[in-house]
């Protein structure tokens, strides 16, 4: 099991796990519940360079499409290829099998602007 307290978060409900310069990105359990049944995941193309807070990809439910923002700037180096057959992984396992893509960070200092789990939980509460 992943320790969610070690992750960094955005106010737009993405999580980030950093290993060296490589950040793995996903959406939070709260976000997957809000989206409900995910039917399609439109991933970014590997090689694409994104800026922090740029809409990097789209997750679709039956009745809505959601932009997922890049939590940090950098180059997309890998995407999760399991969604073509099983988009429901985003719902079933948002922190593990349902990770979305990996990004090579171009500016590690951006990580400092992200939220801790406790901060994320309280932002989320305030938003409601």
């Amino acid at each position: 099991m992943i320790d969610t307290s070690k992750l960094k978060y955005t106010a737009t409900h993405e999580w980030v796990s950093l290993s060296g310069k490589t950040a793995t990105v996903g959406i939070t359990d709260h976000a997957q519940k809000e989206i409900s049944d995910v039917v399609f995941v439109e991933l970014p193309k590997p090689g694409r360079v994104v800026k922090q807070k740029e809409a990097a990809m789209v997750i679709e439910s039956v009745k809505a499409a959601f932009d997922i923002y890049a939590p940090v700037s950098g180059k997309i180096i890998k995407v999760n290829d399991k969604f073509k057959d099983s988009p429901e992984l985003v719902n079933k396992s948002p922190y593990e099998e349902g990770w979305l893509y990996q990004i090579e960070c171009s500016d590690l200092s951006e990580l400092n602007s992200l939220l801790t789990e406790a901060q994320y939980q309280s932002t989320k509460r305030n938003a409601h």
Binding site: V39, F40, S61, V62, K63, A64, A65
Partner: peptide
């Protein structure tokens, strides 16, 4: 595949 459509995505 309605998520692509105007009544859901509006300006997107």
């Amino acid at each position: 595949l309605q998520a692509r459509e105007q009544h859901i995505r509006r300006e997107k």
